[in-house]
Computed example of a mutant assay.
Amino acid sequence: MLTRLLTLVLLLGLSCVVGSHAQPLTRNVLKGACEKLVIAGRDVSPTCGESLVNTVQGRRTSFDFTSSDGTTVSFSGTGMPQDRQEEVGVDALQPVSAVILMVKGTDGGITRDTLMTVGSCRFPPAGPGRSTVACAADTQRGRFEGTFTTASDAPAGK
């Protein structure tokens, strides 16, 4: 089933690349709990927001973690290939090639810094009706990490 899904996503991605130069942007906002946020080696988990934004445009996908001070950390990579990790079951691994750090200044302006990296986002098993995204990357400015679990739509006690 996972192989069919990955093949379908690959074919859709290829059709987008061949069919159009101006590729549409898909933005998904996921609600839940941010369990961990590390920015340049500093743990700022208590400031992490209650939503995670997943953006897909063409072959690039990103997972955006936001802190209460307006800082956003985006873990960005190509949407393909997601690698199944046999040693941990159905866990998938999404390669990350850049961390994009956006910091809101005191004047209201936004500073954007793109840091090249080798990292990954994993999708480990979570509880029923939930999913988890766990990203990590080491850059020249230090380690960046984010872990987010979506809220369950199931009623309590089920």
Rank of each mutant, 00 (worst) to 15 (best):
T3M: 13
R4Q: 07
R4Y: 12
R4F: 14
L5S: 08
T7W: 05
T7E: 06
L8V: 14
L8I: 07
L10K: 12
L10P: 07
L11I: 06
L11T: 01
L12W: 04
G13C: 11
G13S: 13
L14W: 09
L14P: 03
C16N: 05
G19L: 12
G19I: 13
S20Y: 00
S20W: 02
H21Q: 09
L25V: 10
T26R: 15
T26N: 13
T26C: 06
R27G: 03
R27I: 13
V29T: 15
L30I: 14
G32Y: 00
C34T: 12
C34D: 07
E35W: 00
L37M: 11
V38Q: 12
V38H: 02
V38R: 10
A40P: 12
R42E: 14
D43T: 08
P46A: 08
C48S: 00
G49W: 12
G49F: 11
E50D: 15
L52G: 09
V53H: 04
N54G: 00
T55E: 08
Q57I: 02
R59W: 05
R60L: 14
R60T: 11
T61M: 10
S62K: 09
F65M: 07
T66N: 01
S68V: 03
S68A: 15
S68D: 10
T71M: 11
T72C: 06
V73A: 05
S74N: 04
S74H: 01
S76C: 12
S76K: 14
P81K: 07
P81A: 12
Q82F: 13
D83H: 13
Q85D: 15
Q85G: 03
E86T: 13
E86N: 11
E87G: 06
E87L: 09
D91S: 00
A92D: 00
A92E: 05
L93H: 06
P95S: 02
V96R: 03
S97L: 08
S97R: 15
A98D: 11
A98V: 03
V99M: 08
V99T: 12
I100S: 04
I100V: 15
I100K: 02
L101Q: 03
M102D: 07
M102L: 13
M102H: 06
G105I: 04
D107E: 09
G108T: 05
I110C: 08
T111Q: 11
T111R: 05
R112N: 07
M116Q: 10
T117E: 03
V118T: 15
G119V: 01
S120Q: 12
S120I: 01
C121K: 00
R122I: 02
P125H: 13
P125F: 02
A126K: 03
G127I: 01
G127R: 11
P128H: 11
G129S: 10
G129T: 06
G129V: 02
R130E: 08
V133L: 11
C135G: 06
C135I: 02
A136V: 12
T139K: 04
Q140T: 09
R141Q: 09
G142V: 01
G142T: 01
R143D: 00
R143G: 05
E145H: 08
G146C: 03
T147K: 05
F148Q: 06
A151N: 01
S152I: 00
D153E: 05
D153R: 06
P155F: 11
P155G: 10
P155K: 01
P155E: 04
G157I: 06
K158V: 01
K158N: 03
K158S: 04
